[in-house]
């Protein structure tokens, strides 16, 4: 498995040399959504706390970096981490309210959705941060402003983000922290009875997850040069974030990446294909069909089955 992973990374590093710009763009999105999915995987997959408000962290991260850059000329390379930190603070607030008051299942879902919506509506109504129209970033091509003439740099940044998040999860998975998160997901009361401080570990998972997701906000903003409240805080983005790990295998190391390789090209290509044929929106149907198939036939996501097929052992 290890050499297979190394080989895959080498191939991904070499690919931009041979790929056209459209294929490169699709892979950038594969990596970026793979990264967001991996960040969500910590709290949603491993700890089993279903957050459907992760777009809020993307939005906070992106808006923070953009405002720092536009208002004070602070480089997004620093703004990225300030944004991540603020996202982590929001994550801690949501986590505290949810976990301290024992909101589980649907109620936790509603709490996270509500917070993301509050953020979206608040940002839409504050003109200082662009209001409903959002913010635009002027393209300068200056690497210090997180902007690059060569599109392949975004490819490598997105790849680095995805690999870094996967490294973090690989590290967590092997340690007590990761094992405790799996216990909390399987049976919280049983974990508590065995000495697991479930509140503390759920909080930690939420903070790490929201910090990483916040970092992704900067990439999102400076890759697209624009920030719109509906796009960055909206429920559709939150859903995009959780779909990939669920399809690929929530609570597994490679599930979010696998899910992103399955869903992102499908989404983009079908959008293009149906869009050209004048059937706008039909790509969502293709998406939906795949989702239903996964839920029906691979209820634990694709990764555990793929692994059993190749390795023959259980995760």
């Amino acid at each position: 498995m290890r050499w297979l992973g190394a080989l895959a990374v080498l191939v991904l590093l070499a690919l931009p040399a041979v790929l056209g710009s459209y294929a490169t763009t699709i892979l950038i999105l594969v990596f970026f959504y793979g990264f967001l999915g991996q960040a969500w995987n910590i709290v949603g997959g491993y700890a089993g706390q279903l957050s459907v408000g992760h777009a809020a962290f993307v939005g906070i991260g992106g808006y923070t970096a953009a405002m720092l850059s536009l208002e004070w000329g602070i480089t997004p390379w620093i703004g990225m981490f300030v944004g991540g930190a603020l996202a982590a603070v929001l994550g801690a607030v949501i986590g505290y309210l949810g976990f301290r008051f024992g909101l589980r299942g649907f109620y936790f879902v509603l709490l996270t959705v509500a917070f993301a919506e509050i953020c979206r509506i608040a940002v839409s109504n504050v003109d200082a941060v662009g209001g409903a129209l959002g913010l635009y970033i002027t393209f300068t091509g200056d690497p210090r402003q997180f902007q690059f003439q060569d599109g392949r740099v975004y490819y490598y940044i997105a790849l680095a983000l995805m690999l870094a998040a996967t490294g973090v999860v690989a590290l967590l998975e092997r340690r007590r922290f990761g094992i405790y998160l799996a216990a909390i997901r399987e049976d919280e009361s049983a974990a508590e009875a065995l000495g697991v401080d479930t509140f503390k570990y759920k909080m930690l998972a939420m903070v790490v997850s929201s910090f990483l997701t916040g970092l992704g906000g900067t990439f999102y903003a400076f890759y697209l040069f624009s920030l719109q409240p509906n796009a960055m805080f909206g429920i559709p983005l939150s859903v995009e974030i959780i779909l990939r790990p669920i399809v690929g295998g929530a609570g597994t190391l490679l599930g979010p990446i696998l899910g992103s390789f399955m869903l992102t090209p499908l989404g983009e290509l079908s959008r293009l294909y149906f869009g050209q044929g004048g059937h706008h929106g039909l790509h969502l149907v293709a998406y939906g069909v795949l989702l239903i198939a996964v839920v029906l036939f691979l209820p634990q996501g694709a990764y555990p089955y793929l692994r059993r097929f190749f390795v023959g052992s259980r995760p």
Partner: peptide, 10 residues
């Protein structure tokens, strides 16, 4: 999971 409370090293 029970043992990890006394032995932090997995």
């Amino acid at each position: 999971i029970g043992a990890l409370g006394r032995h932090a090293d997995p």
